[in-house]
């Protein structure tokens, strides 16, 4: 049982970090970023190239990954999403753009990095073993700690920095924020860059454990959407809760339902639908996003 809980916390921290980026982009731009999973994969490949191929230190690789993805996010917002949002009759048109962007990133990743599964050398060797009740490799513990540190850092940034305040104002009410003198365009771009950066960082963290391959993008996006829905779209603490809940559900159900065949995800999805039917805005979402 302890093992299941530890696994859940480990998964949950990763998931929460992915969901944070997605929910941030949604809160600021009202964009459902279908390309989020691809951004995560791209982050994994950048880290793989710098740490695994070029042999640079891991910290540097993670830093470069964050910068690369932030630039990608900023460019995408400035040249793609902003013009389309301004000119389109309906908000939903950005979904086609986001899906197209997802395909595009997939294609770029395929051309640049190929379709093979890639892995990097382990960060630290060894396994933590508490009396055979909890067994956890040290590198997973490190990644877990880094993920938690990122989440806390992000929360503090949103809470106390000037940029964070501006972003929160923007998420609450775009017009009001603009009237208060917040440069909506600039902070929209910052927020998108930040969201993409978070996705990239998770990719960079997870590549050391699970490796990375092209096909991971789509399923990751779907999972991230679910976490965002559980917590409530556009709410930052909600995304963290959503990630943790999904992580724990996955680890608990995978072990308890193992004897009934491969129905874990069916159970998770169906219970999510029931939950949303009862509570349409998620745990702490605003009505109608």
């Amino acid at each position: 049982m302890e093992q299941i809980l530890v696994n859940g916390a480990y998964l949950g921290a990763q998931y929460a970090l992915i969901a944070l980026g997605l929910t941030l982009i949604f809160a600021l731009m009202n964009v459902m970023n279908f390309a989020h999973g691809q951004m995560y994969v791209l982050g994994g490949f950048v880290t793989y190239t710098i740490y695994g191929q070029l042999g640079m230190p891991y910290a540097l690789a993670l830093f470069v990954t964050a910068i690369t993805l932030a630039v990608v996010g900023a460019v995408v917002e400035k040249f793609l999403f902003r013009p389309v949002i301004k000119r389109s009759q309906r908000d939903e048109s950005t979904m086609l753009l986001a899906a197209g962007l997802g395909f595009f990133l997939d294609a770029v990743i395929l051309l640049v990095f190929g379709e093979k599964q890639r892995g990097v050398p382990k960060l630290i060797n060894g396994v933590f073993n508490w009396d055979f009740r909890v067994i956890m490799p040290y590198d997973r513990i490190l990644i877990f700690a880094l993920a938690v540190a990122c989440i806390i850092g992000f929360m503090l940034f949103m809470q106390y920095s000037k940029t964070g305040r501006a972003l929160r104002a923007l998420a609450q009410d775009r017009d009001a924020a603009q009237l208060m003198g917040v440069d909506v365009d600039r902070y929209g771009m910052t927020g998108f860059a930040l969201g993409a950066m978070l996705a990239g960082i998770v990719g960079g963290l997870l590549v050391t454990i699970t490796g990375v391959n092209l096909g991971m993008g789509g399923p990751t996006s779907t999972k991230a959407f679910m976490m965002v829905m559980i917590g409530g779209a556009g709410v930052i603490p909600g995304a963290i809760f959503g990630g943790l809940i999904l992580g724990f559900m996955e680890s608990i159900l995978l072990s308890t339902l193992a004897s009934y065949g491969d129905i874990t995800y069916l159970v998770i999805f169906v219970s999510l639908m029931i939950f949303l039917a009862i509570r349409p805005n998620g745990l702490m979402g605003k009505p109608w996003g």
Partner: peptide, 11 residues
């Protein structure tokens, strides 16, 4: 409505 419906249908 909105994204909520979109995501639940995706699920």
């Amino acid at each position: 409505r909105g994204v909520y419906f979109a995501m639940i249908t995706l699920v």
